[in-house]
Design a protein around this nucleic acid. Structure first.
Lengths: 184, 184
DNA sequence: TAGTTTTGTAAGTGATTACTCACTTTTAGT
DNA sequence: ACTAAAAGTGAGTAATCACTTACAAAACTA
């Protein structure tokens, strides 16, 4: 990976997240990155190839996050870490994950990288087990609920990313998943 | 509203939902609707004007749904109806609401019609009150939780719209909001 | 150092796109 | 029936876009 290739990748990511894939011309990416437009096509073949490279990065980063959750010992810690995941994601690389989430609604990319991939299935499995260990009656459904909650939380974070709001919401959510709550 | 104007609106809605705003040329809309391309601009000035007209429809339809929820007598019925809202939306006019949700992530339209508008604020207020009546300790936060849940549910419905799945999920969610559950 | 591959550039190019314009047809008010 | 406004058409047009090509510089290999 040469310096300029990486620069193109980062610039494209930033611009795609800010303005969307279709509304960001390759000429703009080149200009912003300070390289010739042709270089984009030398390295990534297509505009779509550029996006695919970004998506591959996403896959890797997410896999790392999931790995760290799976490594936790306590089932409750795993669940809490999962709740915290979107906050962590956005605080670290906001634009990057924003792009990921917006892609869910684009037909073009829903078939490829967003289809439940390895790390997602692993996380679901691990969290199901965590619920089971905690004595929940319907662990599979609880996972689904948690997934929905996290999706919704991500949406909220995009629209209201204030520190205070995040803190409040997180602690409220965690209080819903505590040892002394009923498990029906 | 002439017949052809309405035809343009419906066709554009369908195509925008299927293929996205930016990747749907006005020429395609005209061809599919069986009208001349110029007519689109006569009626809606811009391609963006066409989208604005669609967004205005959305506002109206959503307002109707909210009104019917607000009209319910029992607080629990209001909450359950809110949970059912996304299912109702998607079963009735899938493409239409899909477009709405995808727009949340587009900068262009986030400032305009998607900003918490009248009906949304009213619904939040009413549901907050419902939680209060049911004796929940923190009704404001419960509403937020419910909003996130509904966002997440909408996401799920887009990816897995099978009847059985919807039915299961709905009844599970409703069971979480029952009179005999604790309200901490 | 000679030769080869890789990285980089600048200037196109054809296709597509949103939008315009000159014009005709239909509708509606009096 | 006359007329003015509104609805509708079809053939442009300028601009933009993804991508190509011919070529040069740099980096690697022997």
């Amino acid at each position: 990976m040469t310096e300029k290739k990486e620069l193109i990748l980062e610039t494209a990511l930033k611009l795609f997240a800010e303005r969307g894939f279709d509304t960001t011309p390759t000429s703009m990416i080149a200009k912003e990155a300070g390289v010739s437009e042709g270089l984009i096509f030398r390295h990534f073949t297509n505009k779509e190839g550029l996006m695919d490279a970004i998506l591959a990065m996403s896959e890797e980063r997410m896999a790392r996050h999931v790995k760290s959750i799976v490594a936790l010992a306590e089932p409750l810690a795993k669940i809490h870490a999962t709740i915290e995941l979107p906050v962590k994601l956005f605080s670290e690389e906001r634009e990057f994950w924003k792009l990921q989430f917006s892609l869910k609604w684009q037909k073009k990319y829903r078939g490829q990288s967003y289809r439940p991939s390895g790390y997602y299935l692993e996380l679901v499995e691990v969290i199901t087990d965590a619920f089971r260990q905690l004595g929940y009656a319907e662990p599979e459904k609880e996972v689904l609920l948690l997934v929905m909650l996290i999706d919704g939380l991500s949406n909220q974070l995009m629209q209201q990313p204030s520190e205070a709001f995040i803190e409040q919401t997180l602690s409220f959510l965690k209080s819903k998943y505590q040892l002394d709550k009923l498990k029906s």
